[in-house]
Amino acid sequence: MKKVFARPESLKLTPFHYCPGCGHSIIHRLVSEVIDELGIRERTVGVPPAGCAVLAYNYFDVDMAEAPHGRAAAVATGIKRVRPDLVAFSYQGDGDIAAIGTAETIHAANRGERITAIFVNNAVYGMTGGQMAPTTISGQVTTTTPLGRAPLRDGYPLDLSEMLGIAAGSVYIERTSVSSPKWINKTKKAIRKAFMVQLEDRGFSLVEILSPCPTNWKMTPVQSIRWVEETMMTIFPPKVIKDVA
């Protein structure tokens, strides 16, 4: 029999440190597969965030550079500006990209930086232990919203992708999910397209991926993918937010 599904070349054979059922590692695999299929492994530089994916450089078998919390878009900008022949992507969680790094992200998008952002939205601060994130939905219980997020006190969940869609320099922005094989395949297509936008030198691209965090949501992995589809998707509907032809 022929092997039809195996680990992509751009993903090291290092076991993931992520919790059981975590969406990060699925997304790592998808990004790696896209890098392999586009044949860009040897000219890609990745910039992971602070947060659970801070150790992403242990998994991707491409050149990887750390960034301070929230600053991945700026670091990727620096790399890409001085070496336009490289393919630069940032890999950022919701706290990283939509709270502390909002300014860097919006301005990178608005300048039309030729970088690709992978935005993992799991509605919670994972690595620090489950605090409220900018994308925590109203009513959601976190360690810093023990009675649930109350918008009039804690603010509303932030639609960062929609905001980035308004920026003139963004070319392609799509929100997807990794809650089922169907969505995972859609996500891979979106990631591929986002990298293509960069390869075609067209501008800023971003894929927001709704991703389960069973540990901090205090759910089983199976419950967590259901929560993504039944609850998160009502607040953050998957769709193509911007696609400049």
């Binding site: 530089v45 910039v47 550079a65 960034a67 301070p68 600053r71 878009a73 700026a74 670091v75 990727a76 900008t77 620096g78 790399i79 890409k80 500006r81 001085v82 070496r83 490289l86 630069a88 300014a103 860097e104 919006i106 301005h107």
Partner: peptide, 24 residues
Amino acid sequence: AVFLQAESELASINMVMGASIAGA
């Protein structure tokens, strides 16, 4: 040559970081 007026000092120092990482 690359000149970029960033959105903040925070962004600019991190762009410096990226450019240095890439060898400039």
